[in-house]
Design a protein around this nucleic acid. Sequence first.
RNA 1: CGGAGUAUAGCUCAGCCUGGUAGAGCACUACGUUCGGGACGUAGGGGUCGCAGGUUCAAAUCCUGCUACUCCGACCA
Length: 574
Amino acid sequence: MRLSRYPLMTLKEVPASAEVVSQQLMLRAGMIRRLASGLYSWLPLGLRVLRKVERIVREEMDAAGAFEMLMPVVQPAELWEESGRWDVFGPELLRFVDRHHRGFCLGPTHEEVITDMARRELRSYRQLPVTFYQIQTKFRDEIRPRFGVMRSREFIMKDAYSFHLDQACLEQTYQRMYQAYAAVCSRLGLRYRAVEADTGAIGGSVSHEFHVLADSGEDAIAYADGGDYAANVEMASCAEPAQTRPAPAAELEAVSTPDIRSIEAISDFLDVRPDRCLKTLLVEGVESGMVALVIRGDHELNPIKAARLPGVATPLKMAEADKITAAAGCEPGFLGPVGLDCPVYADLAVSAMADFVCGANRVDQHLRGVNWVRDLPEPQFTDIRNAVDGDPSPDGRGTLRIARGIEVGHVFQLGSKYSESMGATVLDAEGREQPMLMGCYGIGVTRLVAAAIEQNNDERGIVWPTPIAPFTVLLVPINLHKSPRVQDACETLYTALQSAGVEVLFDDRDARPGVKFADGELIGIPHRVVIGERGLDAGTVEYRRRDAAESEDMPLAGLASALAEKVAAEMDQE
RNA sequence: CGGAGUAUAGCUCAGCCUGGUAGAGCACUACGUUCGGGACGUAGGGGUCGCAGGUUCAAAUCCUGCUACUCCGACCA
């Protein structure tokens, strides 16, 4: 491609609205432009990358034995009513009516549509197992779209759905998909982790998320440094504390703590460490009442674990301030479990605490030297906190570390959730009707592009992994329009690279070299060749990898094939 | 949805407090000089100052309402 004819739309300045590097660089490199909140156009340069990611995903899906198809973006409301999700999905589902007043939605995912297809077309166990996938636009009316293409309302997803007669078969395909996802991530050149995950709105039992590691990631993941355990922090279970509870040593006493409401404040005020304090939270109960959740002062409540407790409303909802005052007789800052008239759950770590500090359920007062059994009955101890760095791994092997991740993929064993509600059955070998078991598997294709940038950039711009770079070789002439020798050498090399199948970008613009170098680095082309009079005298050109600090000379003779080899070697680096 | 903030040229922003004929840098057009790390000169084009109303002789500037966007808290590929 000749750059003089290519619509390269780079920006010198960072648009004010962009907050994460991937978004800044995608805008600056001219990959995307914003149309409205959470809606982006892909410019030619960005689309080249997107298509490459799609191609890799497609290849891995095909290799895993899945069949590509394409389903509509617009879906009829009836299907969603059948599965029961029309009422459950919430405002993220963009709904509308057509001219005949029939209800529709924009597909945020396609379980309903594929299950409808499956129940019509799959009648016999002999047709199973089978997996279908599509690479297609999804729409989710996110409350707050953020980070550019990373969390947009319209995005491209690869979604796959598998159908089975029995659990063993489902597990087999699940494993195969899991492997395919791992292959996609490594072919893309990404550092990633697969972790156990919550199933959320999609439903089902077993699920794993694939996270690209990046500090800007919205999720926290926990992984063992001495074993295989890895889970989303939402899911990571916490073991019972190793140490047993010491015997009470201090007297129970009430202390005046005027306007001291947070754990931090009370810890400073009384000079006790936060891990000697209790944090008491009131949440809505299943019926009108409330439930108290007690965790150690330095820990965080895990809302997913808490919502699973009997008697606690799902999803978890913190009690309103006025309800707390009515029930406990004080404001939220002074809550404690002593004398509280409602069910109390305390975290496992709390069971090992003695002589602790907690709120007195009276304004401006806390208790210190509090002990279970002696001062108040033991509550039910259970796991309700987030795992933290340094916790022992739940499987007993190694210590947990916490890292930030961008969720780029999610695989689920759905079981019969959709096939039962929508009547998707086949006849088994004995001629009996059986609901099919299903798996579903999603990859955020547009998000993968952003995640790749998030992980591969420097102060000058993007540093593309070769397999998804928009072009693989950048050809920069010096004084192209004045030197016939440079012009000849460039034209020859350009043609040779093209016939060697290399995606070469030839910067034949009438611009100064600095501009060309800056643009080339911004858009992240992995290999750069500079051709000038200087080198031609010696029969060499200057070569530099995008991620290298220094340039090196390469002989002009045989250059095209040497470069083609370099590129090919990096194309498939699993 | 709650809280905070912003809206002036294609982009980044100044001007607003203290009302008086719309500004800078970058980008764009033309010509010239320049040409190995985002050059320079000269000349240009481009704005109903988010929208609507009000106060005033006079509003980008003060007041009211609306809209859009951004940021902070509960969802997800």
